[in-house]
Design a protein around this nucleic acid. Structure first.
Lengths: 218, 218
DNA sequence: GCCGGAGTGTCGGCTGGCCGACGGAAGCGT
DNA sequence: ACGCTTCCGTCGGCCAGCCGACACTCCGGC
């Protein structure tokens, strides 16, 4: 679900006309820095140059990630969400008003914007669907299946799949808890569906089984 | 949440330059007609001229309304949602590709698009927030408070608020069940927070109490 | 008036999954 | 090597809220 956010191109600026960034201000941020909060007055649009940013909601007790922005992604501070850097990052900023003007001046960018916003919207809708219709096992299974489709490498015994997030972070993406994720992974491990490969990777043996699980009660 | 979707302008076409609709095809639909389903090949953008359309997700067992489109709203069939007319309606259609071209040709519309998409996104985010962070009483309370702000009439003993939806429909908007909504309303009635006024209206006596309830565990 | 259907109120049982707690394992600085 | 911190696995208790069931009320048709 959320991973669909990743920029499809290795070059973050593919699609932008030359000189489009004139007038943007460049900014570098350290790891873990808060870039936007709900209800802030400042309305800006930004384009990610490097690093990953987490877009999330928070209540007193819990947090829920909506998306992870990667290089090339466009977003705005004018949303009721928090945005925080997961790692050192750099980005281009501009006022939302000026951005509108630039957009008018560079017609080719408008469809690109629509694509990006559409993708983010799809993402949010997908999250709603998950939260409303699917139980935790189905959500986790779907997450793994999508990860496998995006980042998995076909290996001899199955699909090798790097996981660069901790248990807690995954739980946060899926709107559940660390404990639930942990026990599910280990249950599936016992059932032979998958197994760990070191600290930061999984080996999926039975992708179809996962896919089936992800479709249940959906 | 969902009600924030209503078009702000009485004139559905405010903001569109003259002649922008050239190239759109006009279409009228009867009540209850299905306009879009998930996964359909046809990618179109449409602008609502008259009538209300419901945007919703569905699983085998349940449905969940995402938004209600009103005249002036723009949407696309290229989403994993169903779109169905609540009443006789009319709209302008165009292929998504051609829409992109028109957008490039009419620079003033791009910011408008961004606004509309942004509003829909806010809406979806708001729903996610509800589902993830708030319990059913808080969701219902928030719904009533927002309804009161939008449609309520100040009366002697409180705020008189027409409800043109059945219990089932409200449950559907909030992602819960008929029974839960029913018992909550009656509990609050016993507590003197509100009371029924005929079949299709509520009289809110203690709006602040509801507002407080809507903020709990949020 | 009588009947049937749709919408509503209420109850009890059942369960997914959150929460707190705690022990073990892996990384990391010194 | 050593502690220290952070992350991971597991268990049991607990509760919100879904589900099925059923009675009641309202309303329109005939």
């Amino acid at each position: 679900m959320v991973m669909a956010m990743a920029a499809p191109h290795p070059d973050p600026l593919a699609g932008f006309p030359a000189g489009f960034l004139d007038g943007f201000t460049f900014r570098e941020v350290a790891k873990g820095q808060l870039l936007a909060t709900p209800g802030q007055a400042l309305n800006q649009v930004f384009i990610v140059r490097s690093g990953r940013l987490r877009v999330y909601l928070a209540s007193d007790a819990r947090e829920l990630s909506l998306a992870i922005l990667e290089p090339g992604d466009i977003f705005t501070t004018h949303t009721p969400t928090f945005v925080r850097s997961l790692e050192p990052a750099s980005l281009w900023l501009i006022g939302i008003r000026e951005f509108g003007a630039k957009l008018a001046g560079a017609p080719g960018v408008a469809p690109l914007m629509m694509k990006v916003l559409g993708r983010i919207l799809d993402n949010a809708v997908s999250l709603v669907e998950d939260l409303a219709f699917r139980d935790v096992p189905a959500r986790l299974a779907r997450f793994l299946v999508r990860q496998a489709a995006r980042r998995g490498e076909q290996a001899a015994e199955g699909c090798l799949l790097p996981i660069d997030l901790g248990t807690e972070d995954i739980a946060c993406l899926l709107g559940t808890t660390r404990q639930s994720v942990s026990s599910l992974i280990n249950q599936w491990q016992r059932e032979g569906v998958l197994s760990r490969r070191g600290r930061r990777a999984l080996l999926i043996h039975d992708l179809p089984a996962l896919a089936a699980r992800s479709l249940m009660q959906g």
